[in-house]
Design a protein around this nucleic acid. Structure first.
Length: 955
RNA sequence: AGGACCGUAGCUCAGUUGGUUAGAGCGCCACGUUGACAUCGUGGAGGUCACCAGUUCGAAUCUGGUCGGUCCUACCA
């Protein structure tokens, strides 16, 4: 016996274990055959030591819906899971743990530290995969991968070596985004430009050699937001056409504080309108200045160490990276070792005390901050490894332009093209320990050799047994992620998996990661993987781009705001106190705790109820409309939890009426009622709709179609229509058999239809009804997905049931508005009916009487004067409920008047339209006809209602 | 500065190529438990589709502009 309400908790984990143990998630399951298409999704690998957030919940709901849909359709389906080593993030966590014991990674040394990281990975690495299981994701765990697995590490080495051989990886001394806290370079993408308030300091730089400006001053004024970098200035730039400074171009100024002679150069990078029109040029500490330096062959003066503190001695390079021995490297002693912001203060003081500080203006600026560390990024001159990305862009653009990869929604292609067309080289080396070590070795002279391992390098370059040292750096995490779709399938080996499943079909990901990941996957794949005809292969055919999951107020969910929701807390429920505790522990700013507590109390006064995975997944799918951000609404979850309960109870009803009874399995002599034929017809329609929407990635519309079919058609109407048959002692066995059979088979099909979105409840019920529906099998997840059959569409039945519904609606409306008890049997009369109406009544009178709770129903005879009645129109048909003792005259008049007002407006609108000659002349004939018939209907209805109102008034 | 997206019921959102009486869920109001479900049923109220102009016989839908919101990219010495 089924529980009276759906209890998801008891059911979900049980089925998941069963599916996993039976190996149902693996490719090539029962339903597939030789001709099957392959279907493959690679999971975007979450951080191995991370935990689930709402984005994962959303992501997984979509991917699993797609995976289960295609598996049921008979495709050879693989959804492959895995995790990412997440270089910086993971290393930071472990370093923080060490810091609590008062040790740094340097105290431990590289090997010991890495042991610690691996320990942490083993210890916490299972969390996220356990959580993914809880979401019902049907991934093939036997093929789970980790970006630092041996196989993937080999792929990384191979890719690096090949790219180097192809001249697409190089090492160079360049300005990079340096994180002075984490002591590593990061890529452009890892820098966030934050709006902050700052100042624009105006400094006087004295002119050398007695020169003076047009208005007679013996100095230039430069404006800067970063005074401290002036120690590294090697020029002052003005605009080539700036009249104010024409005579100074090619002259020199004396750089204050350090007393260096630096030239005044002309460069159209300078904006004449901004500041004073004079720009200090610091090629070693600013990206724009670096470019100016290149154009004017200026030396680079590096003044910072890796902490962004001032060096005792500057390091001076020529623009090509070679050491410059001409320039004095002395820096004023008092700055040595000072942090960049301390140095700034001192410099400003210096200028000020010498009367060289002209003015200070407040100035809003974008400050580059590391997305992990949050500290201000310093452009810094270092040796790094780069991928020559610009040389790889062409095929990446082509494959999208030619439609081999399609973005959904399409507008993201523009963003992608824009980025690809202006691609900067990608700095791939990181000064971290946790990651793939760069496969390059140095000899003692500093020459480097790239190879798969040390032995290969020695052999290839005939190095004998000279001392070699491997590069200390590791690769950007995204380098390994970029190989994800094919490295996980065995590349560089030519494995059967690679052949079968690559290119994969769909990548499901957030827009925020298009550049980080999507673009780079396309870059690597088109370079390394070729189709049989030699053209570049793509990593996936579709990119489904979704938005961010935000909280109910549209705020980004973040730990610091204390508004994060754990999807599993929605699945399992959580007590208020526990939720508050989760949200307030480990805060960066503990003082926020009180505020977070208050907000949480206000939003979830009762904590969060347990809604179950299916309700959560259904919510995610129905919120998944075209690529925009999602405001997460707990009300929706509740609504869909109720939907689960609705399905559950519909199943209870079906089982009560079919279990142990003749459902037409042996005796196939059945008669289908109009209702049976109708629901079967509607089912075909729903199947077509759902498939159409699934194929177009419209999970919101697919889930809506499922919801409407099950609730509004199957439950609201069909189950009700089945009652008069099943409870009618006079109904024939054939008819009852037909109804029972339809009841259970439509349910069984609807379960399959819904399974990709709600896997658990559908499995649980399916197991109970499969036999009754004449199905066998170990699981619903390997049953065929429903396919609509044209032959089952039944227009006649649809029209009949529509007729029945409209008459019932008319009766219900009168009952509702006239406050007549739902159970009170009514004697109703029908008037103005067509032959069709008479036929329908003849066919469906029994059902109508029972469902509408009628005492009687009949047509008025010709010439028969109707009694005083409440009236409602059902199309042309007039439904009369005699008033005797039931109906209040005033109320009925008001009700009729309301109808009349509505119709009058409609009539006026239509009249206006049809009396417009242009409309009649220009609109397509069918549209005109449609409007004409609408007008006629409105006029007919109006006259009937007016007659009626006159009759009532006369009482 | 360039670009993208958004503005539809109190709230969260649908509305495919212009032709509906503009829809759903939640919330709201009223009524209702005899046999699947109160996590329910029935009925109802609620919208100048941000604003302005244009194209069109016809605009929530197309075009241009205004206002408001979100985001991305670049840059601001």
């Amino acid at each position: 016996m089924m529980e009276k309400t759906y209890q998801p908790g008891q059911i979900e984990s049980q089925w998941y274990n069963y599916w996993e143990q039976q190996g149902f998630f693996k490719p090539n399951q029962a339903n597939t055959n030789e001709q099957s298409n392959s279907f493959c999704i690679m999971i975007p690998p979450p951080n191995v030591t991370g935990s689930l957030h709402m984005g994962h919940g959303f992501n997984n709901a979509i991917m699993d819906a797609l995976t289960r849909y295609h598996r049921m359709k008979g495709d050879n389906t693989l959804w492959q899971p895995g995790t990412d080593h997440a270089g910086i993030a993971t290393q930071m966590v472990v370093e923080r743990q060490l810091a609590q014991e008062g040790i740094s990674r340097h105290d431990l040394g590289r090997d010991k530290f890495l042991e610690k990281v691996w320990e942490w990975k083993e210890q916490s690495g299972g969390t996220i995969t356990r959580q993914i299981r809880r979401l019902g994701s049907s991934v093939d765990w036997s093929r789970e991968r980790f970006t630092m697995d041996e196989g993937l590490s080999n792929a990384v080495k191979e890719a690096f070596v090949r790219l180097h051989e192809d001249g697409l990886i190089y090492r160079g001394k360049r300005l990079v985004n340096w994180d002075p806290k984490l002591h590593t370079a990061i890529s452009d993408l890892e820098v966030e430009n934050v709006d902050e308030k700052g100042n624009l300091w105006h400094f006087r730089y004295p002119l050398a050699d007695g020169a003076s400006t047009a208005d007679g001053a013996n100095y230039l004024v430069v404006a800067t937001t970063r005074p401290e970098t002036m120690l590294g200035d090697t020029a002052v730039a003005v605009h080539p056409e700036d009249e104010r400074y024409q005579n100074l171009i090619g002259k020199f100024v004396i750089l204050p504080v350090v007393n260096r002679r630096i030239p005044v150069v002309a460069d159209d990078y300078v904006d004449r309108e901004f500041g004073t029109g004079c720009v200090k040029i610091t090629p070693a500490h600013d990206f724009n200045d670096y470019e100016v330096g290149k154009r004017h062959q200026l030396p680079l003066v590096n003044i910072f160490d890796r902490d962004a503190a001032v060096l005792a001695q500057a390091q001076v390079f020529n623009i090509d990276g070679t050491v410059n021995n001409d320039l004095d490297t002395t820096l004023p002693e008092k700055f040595a070792g000072l942090d960049r912001f301390e140095a700034r203060k001192l410099i400003i003081e210096d200028f000020d005390s010498q009367g060289m500080l002209e003015k200070v203006d407040p100035h809003a600026l974008k400050v580059p901050r590391g997305d992990r560390s949050g500290v201000i990024i310093e452009p810094w001159l270092t040796d790094q490894w780069y991928v020559k990305a610009s040389a790889m862009a062409k095929p990446c653009i082509d494959v999208v332009e030619e439609g081999h990869i399609q973005f959904v929604p399409k507008q993201y292609e523009n963003m992608y093209f824009a980025w690809m067309r202006d691609l900067q080289d990608w700095c791939i080396s990181r000064q971290l320990w946790w990651g793939h070590r760069i496969p390059a070795w140095y000899d003692e002279q500093g020459n480097f050799y790239v190879g798969r391992d040390e032995a290969e390098v020695r052999a290839k370059h005939d190095l004998g047994d000279i001392t070699l040292r491997q590069d200390d750096d590791v690769l950007d995490t995204w380098f390994s992620s970029a190989l994800w779709t094919f490295s996980t399938l065995g590349w560089p080996e030519e494995t059967p998996e690679l052949k079968t499943f690559h290119p994969t079909n769909v990548l499901v990901t957030g827009f925020d990661i298009i550049f980080f990941w999507v673009a780079r996957m396309i870059m690597m794949t088109t370079h390394f993987i070729k189709n049989e005809d030699g053209t570049p292969q793509v990593p996936f055919k579709y990119v489904y781009v979704h938005g961010l999951v935000r909280d109910s107020e549209g705020q980004k969910m973040s730990k610091s705001k204390g508004n994060v929701l754990d999807p599993l807390d929605i699945v399992d429920g959580i007590e208020l106190e526990h939720l508050v505790q989760k949200r307030t522990t480990g805060l960066m700013q503990p003082k926020m705790a009180e505020q977070i507590k208050k907000k949480t109390y206000a939003e979830f006064p009762e904590g969060i109820a347990s809604y179950g995975t299916d309700a959560l997944r259904f919510t995610m799918c129905s919120l998944a409309s075209t690529g925009r951000d999602i405001k997460f609404d707990m009300g929706r979850v509740e609504g869909f939890r109720n939907f689960c309960n609705k399905i559950w109870n519909a199943a209870r009803y079906v089982l009560m009426n079919t279990e142990g009874q003749d459902v037409g399995l042996e005796n196939t002599d059945v008669e289908l009622s109009l209702a049976d034929r109708w629901i079967i017809s509607r089912l075909q329609h729903a199947e077509a709709e759902v498939a159409r929407h699934m194929d177009q990635f419209r999970f919101d519309l697919a889930s809506q179609a499922i919801y409407e079919f099950i609730w509004n058609e199957y439950c609201d109407w069909y189950l009700e229509l089945s009652k008069p048959v099943l409870w009618d002692d006079n109904a024939s066995d054939e008819l009852k058999r037909g109804t029972r059979r339809t009841l259970v088979r439509v349910l069984e099909t609807a379960l399959r239809l819904a399974h990709p979105i709600m896997p658990f409840i559908t499995e649980e019920i399916w197991q109970k009804v499969k036999g009754l529906a004449g199905k066998s099998g170990d699981t619903i997840m390997l049953q065929p997905y429903p396919v609509p059959e044209e032959s089952k569409a039944d227009e006649e039945a649809v029209q009949s049931i529509e007729w029945l519904k409209s008459v019932m609606l008319a009766v219900r409306n009168i009952r509702g508005e006239m406050d007549i008890a739902p159970g009170k049997p009514l004697p109703i009369l029908l008037a103005h009916g067509s032959d069709k109406d008479r036929q329908e009544l003849a066919k469906q009178e029994t059902v109508l009487v029972k469902l509408a709770r009628l005492e009687s129903v009949r047509f008025l005879q010709d010439g028969e004067e109707p009694p005083a009645s409440a009236t409602q129109l059902a199309g042309q048909l007039e439904v009369l409920v005699p008033m005797a003792g039931l109906i209040d005259k005033a109320a009925e008049l008001a009700r009729l008047q309301k109808e009349i007002d509505k119709l009058t407006k409609e009539q006026q609108r239509l009249n206006g339209k049809l009396s417009n000659e242009k409309f009649v002349a220009k609109a397509p004939a069918e549209v005109v006809e449609k409007e004409k018939s609408k007008l006629k209907e409105a006029a007919d209805a109006l006259s009937k209602l007016q007659e009626q109102i006159a009759r009532i008034e006369a009482l």
